[in-house]
């Protein structure tokens, strides 16, 4: 774990537990990092609801990065950086893909899209995290979960 990840001006934070990993585009590799984050959420006394929320949002973001961003190419890397503050968990996930326009993703709750088998990841990330921002043309997502926020 590094002492302090660079947040590219998005989050200027100091102190707390932080980590940064650069991994190949493999679900199993990402799973290891996700397990590390979940353990730290437990160690930092986040509630079960917060942990469920972060687990779901981080998984959706990581899978998007691997599947849609890096097109499952194991030669391409995923960068996952996170930081804990007193009242929040922050995470940044970057891929090496071409990016996308998050506003152009169809609303999966619309009648016409309801039975499509994919397209719900962004909805779940936005619902469960306190803040979600897409940067760098959609190749980076930064998310924040404040303790106890719904």
């Amino acid at each position: 774990m590094s002492a302090s990840p660079a947040w590219d001006g998005m989050w200027r934070l100091s102190g707390g537990v932080a980590g940064e990993h650069v991994i190949p585009s493999l679900i199993a590799e990402a799973h290891r990092v996700q397990q590390e984050i979940l353990q730290l959420l437990r160690d930092n006394a986040f509630t079960d609801r917060d942990i469920f929320a972060v687990k779901l949002a981080v998984e959706e973001a990581v899978v998007n990065a691997i599947r849609h961003g890096n097109q499952l190419d194991p030669q391409k890397k995923i960068r996952i950086a996170y930081q804990f503050t007193e009242d929040a968990f922050l995470v940044r996930i970057c891929d090496e893909g071409c990016g996308f326009d998050p506003d152009a993703v169809p609303d999966p709750t619309q009648e016409a899209n309801l039975e499509k088998p994919s397209g719900r990841g962004l909805l779940l990330m936005r619902y469960y995290m306190t803040e979600v921002h897409f940067l760098d043309g959609g190749t980076t997502v930064v998310m924040c979960k404040r303790r106890g926020s719904s």
């Binding site: 779901l56 899978v63 039975e115 499509k116 088998p117 990841g121 779940l124």
Partner: peptide, 16 residues
């Protein structure tokens, strides 16, 4: 205790 959007996709396909 946990389910992601990928699982929802499988359930939708199974339902169809």
């Amino acid at each position: 205790e946990y389910l992601s959007s990928a699982a929802l996709g499988k359930l939708i396909t199974l339902n169809k």
